[in-house]
Structures are given as structure tokens and as C-alpha cells.
Computed example of a mutant assay.
Amino acid sequence: MALTDADVQRQIKHMMAFIEQEASEKVEEIDSRAEEEFNIEKGRLVQTQRLKMMKYYEKKEKQIEQQKKIQMSNLMNQARLKVLKARDDMIRDLLNESRERLAEIAKDPARYSALLEGLVLQGFYQLLEPKVTVRCRPQDVEVVQAAVTKIIPVYKEAVKININVRIDQERFLPSEICGGVEVYNDNGKIKVANTLESRLELMAHQMTPEIRVNLFGANPNRKFTD
């Protein structure tokens, strides 16, 4: 039986509706898959960026921590240097005070004469030369001469040899020093420095470790005291 135009139109509409339904379902499927893939890619990108940010801030945190350690170390070193300087200044002040007190010794004639006798005699013993020259401050010539006269017999008795002593009255020690003498051998190449300042410096060098311990206590990190 032949189809009428109306039947053909109905079939065409039916086919078009079926095609439209298929197309609509396909579109929804594509949209759903696209959204799923988008969400997966978005999650992957977010996770990647999150890991990058975590690594970045972790690196920054380590850098900051390292800078804090360096700054703390620098501050500790600066504080330690300040403490050491303050200690050195205190010891220097003690030595300066000692030098000022040395100047008072020469103002006591009896005490200063006895001290000069010991300093000159020590110079003789250190040189053990038959001829020596003694150099002193210009204001000490007489008291040094008296000391030399007094100790020559003591020296001869101790070492069993003679000694010829000359007091240098052409080249004196600076008058502003605290006192004492320098004793030279005959050719002037060997010198025993027995000025009060030189004795103080020697004593200070020897006693500085002990002074530090007495003032500031023992340093647990110091292996040697010299």
C-alpha cells in the first residue's frame, strides 16, 4: 500500500525527533565528559601549583631560618668581641693604674735606692760581663752611683770575678719614665732592660692569664693559658 504524504511527513518528523534525541544525548555526554576532564585537569593543575607553592615557601622558610642563624651568630660574635674588649680595657686600666703607682716609688728615697740596687745587681748577673755600662734617668745618677758602689762587692763575692762599671752620663733614659736602669755589655750589643716599665710589662705578660681568671673566672673553652 502506497504511503500518503501525511504518512511520509509523520515518518520524517519521527526520524527527525529521533535524530534530535540522539544528538541531545550525545551533546550531554560530550559536555559531561568535557566537564569531568576539566575537573581532572583543574585538580591536577591545582595540585601541581600547590606543591610548587609548598616547595617555594619551604625553601623560603629554610632561607629565613638560615638568615636568623647567621644573624644570631653575628650578634653573638659582636657581643663576645664587646665583652673581650671590655675585659682588655679593664686590664689595660689596671696596668695604667700600676704605672701611676710606679711613679710614686721614686718619690721614696730609701725604697727607691733599695729597688735600684736589686735592678742593677740583677742586670750584672744576667750579663756576667767584666765591663758593663749602666744607663739611667738624669735625675737618678747619684742614687745609681751609690747603688753600684754598694753592690759591686756583693757581685764579686757571688760570681768570683771583677767587674768594671761605667754610668753613662751622655745618653740618659727619658726623664719621664718611672725609673729603673738599663745595663749593657761593653760593646753595647746586649742589653738588660730593668726599667720599672719594662719590669711591669714583663710581669703583666706573665700574670695576665692569672689576672683574667681572678677577674672573670676560668674560661672552659681555653686549653692553654699563655
Results as ranks from 00 to 15, higher is better:
Glu65Met: 13
Glu65Asp: 14
Gln67His: 09
Gln67Lys: 14
Gln67Arg: 11
Lys68Phe: 10
Lys68His: 14
Lys68Ala: 11
Lys69Gly: 01
Lys69Gln: 15
Gln71Tyr: 06
Met72Leu: 13
Met72Asp: 15
Asn74Cys: 03
Met76Asn: 12
Met76His: 07
Ala79Ile: 05
Ala79Asn: 04
Leu81Cys: 06
Leu84Ser: 10
Arg87Val: 04
Asp88Asn: 12
Asp88Trp: 00
Asp88Pro: 01
Asp88Phe: 06
Met90Phe: 09
Ile91Pro: 02
Leu95Pro: 04
Asn96Arg: 05
Asn96Glu: 13
Glu97Gln: 08
Glu97Leu: 08
Ser98Val: 11
Arg99Ala: 10
Glu100His: 14
Glu100Val: 06
Ile105Met: 12
Ala106Phe: 00
Ala106Gly: 12
Ala106Ser: 13
Lys107Gln: 15
Asp108Ser: 06
Pro109Leu: 04
Ala110His: 07
Ala110Thr: 14
Ala110Ile: 15
Arg111Leu: 13
Leu116Lys: 13
Glu117Val: 12
Gly118Tyr: 04
Leu119Ser: 03
Leu119Phe: 08
Val120Phe: 08
Leu121Lys: 05
Gln122Ser: 15
Gly123Val: 04
Gly123Arg: 09
Tyr125Asn: 09
Gln126Ser: 08
Gln126Ala: 08
Gln126Glu: 12
Leu127Asp: 12
Glu129Gln: 15
Pro130Gly: 09
Pro130Glu: 10
Lys131Thr: 12
Lys131Gln: 14
Lys131Pro: 11
Val132Thr: 07
Thr133Lys: 14
Arg135Leu: 01
Arg135Pro: 00
Arg137Phe: 01
Arg137Gln: 02
Arg137Gly: 02
Arg137Asn: 03
Gln139Thr: 00
Asp140His: 01
Asp140Ser: 01
Val141Gln: 02
Val141Pro: 03
Glu142Trp: 04
Glu142Phe: 01
Val143Gly: 02
Ala146Leu: 05
Ala146Ile: 05
Thr149Arg: 15
Thr149Ala: 11
Lys150Trp: 00
Ile151Pro: 00
Ile152Tyr: 04
Pro153Val: 06
Pro153Tyr: 05
Pro153Gly: 10
Val154Pro: 01
Val154Gln: 10
Tyr155Cys: 07
Lys156Gln: 15
Lys156Asn: 06
Lys156Met: 12
Ala158Trp: 09
Ala158Met: 09
Val159Ala: 03
Lys160Leu: 12
Ile161Cys: 07
Ile161Leu: 09
Asn162Arg: 08
Ile163Ala: 11
Asn164Asp: 14
Asn164His: 07
Arg166Ser: 07
Arg166His: 09
Glu170Arg: 11
Glu170Trp: 02
Leu173Glu: 00
Glu176Asp: 07
Val181Ala: 07
Glu182His: 08
Val183Glu: 11
Val183Ala: 08
Tyr184Glu: 06
Tyr184Pro: 05
Asn185Tyr: 07
Asn187Phe: 06
Lys189Gln: 10
Lys189Gly: 04
Lys189His: 10
Lys189Asp: 13
